[in-house]
Design a protein around this nucleic acid. Structure first.
Lengths: 232, 232
DNA sequence: CGTTTTTTTACGGGTTCTTTACGGCGGCGC
DNA sequence: GCGCCGCCGTAAAGAACCCGTAAAAAAACG
């Protein structure tokens, strides 16, 4: 809207993938800044102040997770992680470190652009929104701790609300199991992922039209959960 | 409106955020006073007598919650808390200490200005206008410390009135157990939640049409209570 | 001294949280 | 292809917690 050309920083060592990203994103009108390694990446992030960063995890000099940590020390821009299937573990580490989303190689143009759009939209939305999220027939006001469905009030327990808040703060983005458990139950319960299964079901029961095929409270197998809201 | 230029005190250590606040609020015509740390912040608050204070929780010298306590010792100006911590814990602490609102980083201009407006409006209203709350058949005038039901006066004990006032100051919002106990009985009685149960029942008996199914004095299980008034 | 108000004590019922158990689905190795 | 295993969803029951209610004792008040 107001921004004519969002700037995307790409931190990636493999030339072919850089080429691919450059042409895909360039065709959509994004301005691209490329960094071939982690060191340059952190520097370029500070210099160019991009609107979005795409970071490969397998970098030659040091780990992509470290790049994310350093960027997160001073900036809240959305970060999308690029990972091979083998790096399942470090993918989750990256999300825990502050990344917002991930794409598993190999990937296509469509998926890439979709996630980039979502990430940028999230940035502008979280910047200028009152904290009311619309999920189909239900609306949740996190400030007032109240939820309505088709106009009628529905009751949310403290834990349900904490979970929802945590997911809403990373709207449209992935939140890992560890993150959720740490925020809601505390660091000592980081391993008890079955809590999440139970409460996600309850939340779906209360919020979703069809709890069996959720449209908003989505599960990212092996990683965490994602809350997708409607346009306001 | 009547005030030409409300003064906003910003207590924040990070220069970028100070810059952001200065430009955002300055463009709206507010006068800005900036303090880089907690110590200066409490001093500046006393010197400049601002109409509103924005306080970061993560300050270098001592905690933002402490700043709030010190300001609250002598002033009732609205205080908005700024924090990167998502934890529910510090949020509750800040509100308990006397903060009025809470913004989680990152945030945008729109959200900031909206909250500032709300806070200032709240302040001028509670300062000037005679505050009368309508709860179905009963009306409560907090200024005159009187309540009527269907026109006849009903007697409220001092504690009942304090509780009602405390809830009314955060109309439509949840007030935590601790907050209520602290305001009414003092900090040393923060644990005795059974006081609340007893007095809430008494209040409902006097105010509600059907005390068993309250329409205005609502309980938020595990958190606190909420007062909902009718539209005026 | 009598009345009003506050504090103390006790109990029952309801909600919420935790624990435990089972079945389905998909990947992965054999 | 087949069975194993990890991950997820579902269900239900037990425990823990919170809330409302009642009533008596203590304190404050005039």
């Amino acid at each position: 809207m107001t921004e004519p050309r969002p700037t995307v920083l790409v931190i990636e060592d493999q030339p072919e993938i850089r080429q691919f990203l450059r042409s895909s994103l360039g065709a959509e009108g994004y301005r691209i800044v490329e960094s071939p390694n982690a060191r340059r990446g952190t520097i370029d992030a500070g210099m160019h102040k991009p609107d979005l960063a795409i970071v490969d995890l397998g970098l030659p000099d040091f780990d992509g997770v470290e790049v994310i940590r350093r960027i997160r020390e001073w900036s809240h821009i959305p970060i999308i992680v690029l990972s091979a299937r083998i790096q399942e573990r470090s993918k989750i580490d990256a999300l825990d470190a502050g990344a917002d989303d991930y794409i598993t190689k190999p990937f296509g143009v469509g998926e890439l652009l979709a996630r980039v759009r979502v990430a940028l939209r999230h940035a502008t939305r979280s910047a200028s929104g009152s904290k009311v999220i619309i999920l189909g027939p239900t609306a949740v006001d996190l400030e007032k701790r109240r939820a309505t469905r088709d106009g009628n009030e529905i009751r949310l327990t403290p834990i349900e609300l904490k979970l929802l808040t945590c997911l809403a703060q990373h709207l449209d983005m992935v939140v890992t199991h560890r993150q959720l458990l740490r925020e809601v139950w505390g660091p000592s319960h980081e391993e008890q992922t079955h809590y999440l299964r139970i409460y996600m079901r309850q939340l779906r029961e209360k919020l979703e039209t069809d709890p069996v095929q959720p449209k908003h409270l989505l599960t990212e197998t092996g990683v965490g959960y994602r809350l997708v809201a409607d346009e306001g």
